[in-house]
Design a protein around this nucleic acid. Structure first.
Lengths: 188, 188
DNA sequence: CTAACGATAGACCGACCGGTCTATCTGCTG
DNA sequence: CAGCAGATAGACCGGTCGGTCTATCGTTAG
């Protein structure tokens, strides 16, 4: 029985780095990541080349997970675009209320990374672009009169919820923002 | 003529730290701050006790400046509360469009500081509380039906503008958010 | 069996971290 | 002038940073 097959060093590194960089920021040390992953120092540099590339890969894989979460949130609202977008914000409220949530990984990384040359930088921008495109697609589908501006406004609200709930845990940012979401959707 | 009187080491340290922690984050090294301030290493520990206290003092004095800027922004709108709040967001748009702007110092610090025990942490929360109170006072004055929620929503928009303009320089976040500001103010 | 490969532990590197120290210099006050 | 307080430069400390190294172990393929 190989049922409990332990993931390889690469996956353990990614998992540990995903956890630790979220909890302590991307400035967390490689030693802590190696210890958490129970992986040899050499394996990190063998698989990723360096810490920066590991961080970039963490953001890349996290972005895929998070974008999938957004897609699921939309789908939880059914077929009608307006209901889908409202459902997305409901799911966001649930997500930001969960224990362990303490902010947006990408926004935090953006303010931590000192230069746009960092390989993780492009992942941050790419993630935000893709989320924006998802919002835009729903607005297009519902025939919103100004889908471009509205999509940006919805992303403002998403990010505001993520930031404020981190700064003031338990605030219930998503519920507070609800009327603004409706204002965006119902704008003439 | 003592016209060019150089500020003392304490003020030079504060100015250098204010600049460098904004540009590079609070994780900037003390060596860089000392060099920029042209101050002896010993003076830092004599005046502030340590880096953490220096950072806290930087946030404290920066908060006073920024809150004054918000107050001036309100005043630029005249006497009528609604006009004052709209003017605040106009001034915010000008401010975030200026060269050298690259995000909100307090939000960045919040995601960098690892623990709420850090002396700077209270300054962050205090600043956000005071800005919220300023918004709330205007909403009260204009007889807004739901001033508490509306104040939080306005702060969401302020923070969203600060964050998004940092992530996407040149976006014009304040102008994009304008309809949402009006939606908050005109809510029944 | 053996050769090869991937992973392991851990020593080691130079650089930098925040913080303490001594010694020297400068400018004000009595 | 003497003396003192505050500022200076810079050596120094232990610890940690990201990254490279050697040597050993375990598995697997030939």
């Amino acid at each position: 029985m190989t049922a409990v097959a332990r993931p390889g060093p690469r996956d353990r590194l990614l998992a540990a780095a995903r956890d630790l960089t979220y909890r302590h920021g991307v400035s967390v040390g490689v030693d802590a990541i190696l210890k958490e992953a129970e992986v040899a120092r050499r394996s990190l540099y063998q698989h990723f080349g360096g810490k920066d590339e590991l961080v970039a890969e963490v953001l890349r894989t996290s972005a895929a997970v998070d974008e999938r979460r957004y897609a699921d949130g939309l789908d939880s609202g059914g077929d009608e675009p307006r209901a889908r977008l409202l459902a997305l914000f409901d799911r966001l409220g649930e997500f930001t209320g969960r224990e362990g949530f303490h902010g947006c990984r990408y926004i935090a990384a953006h303010s931590s990374l000192t230069s746009p040359e960092h390989p993780a930088y492009a992942e941050i921008i790419g993630h935000k672009d893709r989320v924006l495109a998802m919002l835009r697609a729903e607005l297009d589908a519902m025939g919103h009169p100004g889908p471009e501006g509205a999509a940006i406004r919805l992303q403002f609200l998403v990010d505001a919820i993520l930031v404020e709930e981190a700064v003031r845990p338990g605030l219930g940012a998503a519920a507070i923002a609800r009327p603004l979401v409706e204002a965006v959707l119902d704008a003439q």
